[in-house]
C-alpha cells in the first residue's frame, strides 16, 4: 500500500517522470500560491475519480469505459469549479480556465485507465493520493522557483529585496518549459547517481 502511495510521488511523478501533466505545469505554476491551489484541486479530483471508478469498474460496459470515465471526471471537476467560485473566488480567478481544463488533463484519465479500472478501491485511493500529492509537490516546487526568480518573492512575501532585478521570462510559459526540463534532468541525474552507488 505504501509503495503504491510513494510511487506517484517519486518513481512515477506525474510531471517529472510521466510528463503527463505538462499543460498546467507550464501555465499555472507562475506563483507558489497558484501552484499549490492547482495541486490541491487535482489531488481532490484524481483521488475521488480513482475511488469512484474503481468502485463502479464492474458496472461499466467495457466498450464505453472512456466516455464513462470522462463523465465521472467532468462531474467532479464541475463540482470543484462551482465550490471554488463560491468560496475561494481569488483562487478561482487566478486559475481561470485551467480549473475546467482538469477534465482533459492526461494524468487523471491515465490513472483511471491504467490503474483504477484494474485495481481495488483501497489501492486506487492510495494511487490517487500519491499521484495527486506528487503533482501538487511538483507544482509548488515549480511555483516557488518561478516566483522567486520572476518576481523576487515566495507566496507573496518579498525575499530578494528591493534591488533584485526579476528574470521576466520565468513568469511566462517558455521559462516554465526550461525549468521543467532542467528539473527533469536533475532528477534523472540524481537517480542514476544514487542507483550506481548501490
Amino acid at each position: 500500500m505504501l509503495k503504491i502511495f510513494l510511487n506517484g510521488i517519486f518513481k512515477e511523478n506525474p510531471i517529472f517522470r510521466l510528463a503527463l501533466a505538462l499543460c498546467p505545469s507550464l501555465a499555472v505554476s507562475n506563483t507558489a500560491f497558484n501552484g499549490l491551489g492547482m495541486g490541491l484541486c487535482l489531488l481532490f479530483v484524481i483521488t475521488s475519480s480513482n475511488v469512484i471508478i474503481s468502485s463502479v469498474r464492474n458496472l461499466i460496459h467495457p466498450k464505453i469505459r472512456i466516455p464513462a470515465y470522462l463523465t465521472i471526471i467532468a462531474v467532479l471537476v464541475t463540482m470543484v469549479e462551482a465550490f471554488l467560485h463560491a468560496y475561494v473566488p481569488a483562487l478561482h480567478k487566478s486559475l481561470g480556465i485551467f480549473i475546467a481544463l482538469m477534465v482533459v488533463f492526461a494524468i487523471v484519465l491515465a490513472r483511471a485507465e491504467v490503474f483504477a479500472s484494474k485495481n481495488t478501491v483501497w489501492k486506487s485511493l492510495m494511487d490517487g493520493l500519491g499521484m495527486g500529492l506528487g503533482f501538487a509537490l511538483a507544482m509548488v516546487l515549480l511555483g516557488i522557483i518561478r516566483e522567486l526568480l520572476g518576481s523576487g518573492s515566495v507566496f507573496g512575501y518579498n525575499i530578494m529585496g528591493q534591488n533584485f532585478k526579476p528574470i521576466l521570462i520565468m513568469l511566462f510559459s517558455p521559462g516554465a518549459f526550461l525549468l521543467v526540463g532542467l528539473l527533469m534532468g536533475f532528477f534523472n541525474w540524481y537517480e542514476r547517481r544514487f542507483t550506481k552507488n548501490l
Partner: peptide, 30 residues
C-alpha cells in the same frame, strides 16, 4: 450500452444539480 451510459449521466446530472443548488446563490453574491 445506451442504458449504461444514460445511468451514469443521470447520476452525474443529479449530483451537479445538487451542487448548483448549493453554490449558485453564493456565486451570485460573490
Amino acid at each position: 450500452i445506451g442504458i449504461n451510459l444514460m445511468l451514469i449521466c443521470l447520476v452525474g446530472g443529479t449530483i451537479l444539480a445538487a451542487t448548483n443548488f448549493i453554490t449558485a446563490p453564493k456565486i451570485e453574491e460573490v
